[in-house]
Simulated scan of single mutants.
Amino acid sequence: MKLDPVSLRLFVAVMEENTIARASAREHIAPSAASRRLSELESALKVELFTRSNKGVEPTAAAFALLNLARGVLNDLDGIASQMRDYGSGARGHVRIVANISAITQFLPRQIQSFLALHPQVDVRLQEQISTAIAHSVAENAADVGILNAGNYGEKVTLLPYRSDELALVVPVGHTLARRKSVRLTDALAYDFVGMHPGSAINNVLTRAAAEAGLPLKLRIQVTSYDALCLMVVAGLGVGVLPRGSAALYSALAIRTVPLAEPWAVRQLALCVRSEESLSSVTRLLVDHLRDNTPPPPR
């Protein structure tokens, strides 16, 4: 049995308009072609849908039963078309994001929330990675969008401006450096450090800056999260470095945040994509949203 939506729509129109002539005009089809389609529909279903007379056509009991079924099928078809249009426009779909902990703790929660409020049919999947892994994931199509520290990671990706953040020193309340308005790293290197996990961007920049200063970086313990770092600092196991925006989340702890008077303390975060031309509709919507919510860079 072959049923086509054109014939079903015509049948529904005949049932609703009560005449083939008005139904034909509504569906933009010639009356003769409409009659032929109705006959073919009856033949396909092997049932009489209308009794014909000089006064016109009268629907049979089968026609009333088919009317509800046809409306359901046509509504489902319209729903398929609507959903596919949504996918094409980006209103539906899913986006895979990989981001470093700095972006996740400072910026992404509110931005993703506002994006999903505008596009509730989009599924956003977020995973934390370090910047080198983020660039690789995007290059290998394991992720659609990445947020990482701006730099060259040896991958074929495109970086777009996102945000800047500022690294600061975190010390226990009562620490000698807690009273400073700002501090140089050379002063902080006199103390033990609570570091982030190996390979993290913060550890890399601290190691490089310490080497350039000719002083050792005494990592007493390394952790995998900012909350763990702050708790270790509170416990007196050392001082630490993390973004000021992230440190503000732990202001209830007995810690103090001291600005770092170093040029490398201000970092640029970037959006990472394979190429702007390769973005799907839904990924383009998210990228535009993230960029629209980006404040202008400081002058």
Rank of each mutant, 00 (worst) to 15 (best):
R284W: 06
A252V: 10
G238M: 08
N68S: 12
P263T: 09
V157R: 05
A117F: 06
S53W: 04
V241I: 07
T224S: 03
G214V: 03
A99V: 01
L116F: 01
E140M: 10
A188W: 03
M196S: 02
T283L: 04
V223T: 02
I29Y: 11
L249C: 00
P172R: 02
R125N: 10
A25T: 06
T176Y: 07
S164M: 15
Q113M: 13
E27R: 15
F64H: 12
N18E: 15
R22N: 14
T105K: 12
T257K: 02
L108H: 05
A117Y: 04
N68D: 13
A70H: 02
P198V: 09
F11W: 08
R180S: 02
V287Q: 06
G72S: 14
V73F: 06
R267V: 02
R85H: 04
A168H: 06
F115R: 10
I147F: 06
S102G: 00
A252W: 05
A150C: 13
E277K: 11
G146Y: 08
V241H: 03
T158V: 10
A33I: 05
S24D: 14
L67G: 03
S131Y: 04
K218R: 15
D78S: 03
A201Q: 12
L159F: 01
L249D: 00
G236S: 05
S53Q: 07
R244N: 12
D123G: 04
W264R: 11
R9V: 00
G56R: 05
V95M: 13
L286G: 00
T283Y: 08
H136I: 15
S114N: 09
Q222M: 12
R125Y: 09
L159T: 11
L290N: 00
R274Y: 09
R52D: 01
R92G: 00
H197A: 15
Q111A: 13
L69D: 07
Q268D: 13
L169T: 11
P5Q: 08
E155R: 10
M15P: 05
G79V: 02
L45I: 05
A99Q: 06
L185T: 09
V194G: 03
L237M: 14
D78C: 00
V205L: 11
V234H: 06
C272L: 03
Y87L: 14
N68I: 04
L242Q: 02
V14M: 09
L49I: 00
L126Q: 05
I29T: 08
E17N: 11
L215C: 09
R110E: 15
A135V: 01
A117C: 04
L253N: 07
H175A: 09
G154R: 03
S246Y: 04
L237N: 14
M232C: 12
L285G: 00
I112V: 15
A117I: 00
T207Y: 10
C272Y: 03
D292L: 12
A23M: 09
M84K: 15
T51G: 08
Q113K: 14
T224K: 03
